[in-house]
């Protein structure tokens, strides 16, 4: 089979894998590499459940070919917590009950990280538009927006 060998970095760790040319990064993350924290909701870029960072830029892993990841740095939900514990965004999602079923949560947390990396103090409208590509069907978004606002405060003024 005409598989391609790709070398990339996932959550700071060098990773090599074989993929078919038409396979998405999402398929490889989940099925080949067993990183199932990145979720699949539509595979057409319409739900954001598979949000990951590619060189710090927010993308849908379902709309990136695995082959395109070669030489780039990928950050997934599994890469956010550290030895010190949960990332403040993860902590705030928990404290604000910003998840119900939780399937959209990894994507939303990664998208929030990309937002706060660029806009440390976003207003509500900025947050809502930035996260418009992440569908959540459970929460009505209210508690998510509040968690993001609180995470921004917490990142600006670490306790």
């Amino acid at each position: 089979m005409d598989k391609i060998q790709i070398g990339t970095s996932i959550n700071g760790e060098a990773v090599e894998f074989l993929c078919e040319p038409q396979q998405s990064l999402l398929e490889v993350l989940r099925d080949t590499l067993g990183r199932t924290g990145t979720k699949e909701g539509c595979s057409t870029g319409d739900c954001g459940a598979c949000s990951v960072l590619m060189d710090g830029r927010l993308v849908c892993a379902c709309l990136v070919l695995a082959a395109e990841a070669g030489g780039h740095e990928i950050t997934t939900i599994e890469g956010l917590a550290t030895d010190a514990g949960l990332h403040p965004i993860q902590q705030k999602f928990l404290e604000h009950a910003a998840l119900q079923c939780g399937i959209c949560t990894p994507g939303l947390i990664v998208a929030t990280k990309a937002l706060l990396d660029r806009h440390p103090d976003p207003d509500e409208t900025t947050i809502r538009y930035w996260l418009a590509g992440n569908l959540c069907r459970c929460t009505g978004y209210d508690k998510i927006i509040r968690a993001v606002q609180d995470a921004a405060r917490s990142l600006a003024h670490p306790a």
Binding site: I77, Q90, F93, L99, I109
Partner: peptide, 17 residues
Amino acid sequence: VRPDGVDKVTGRAQYGA
């Protein structure tokens, strides 16, 4: 905070697929 919360914000929780 819900008991299953940490696994759901870190991607550990296993869903259907």
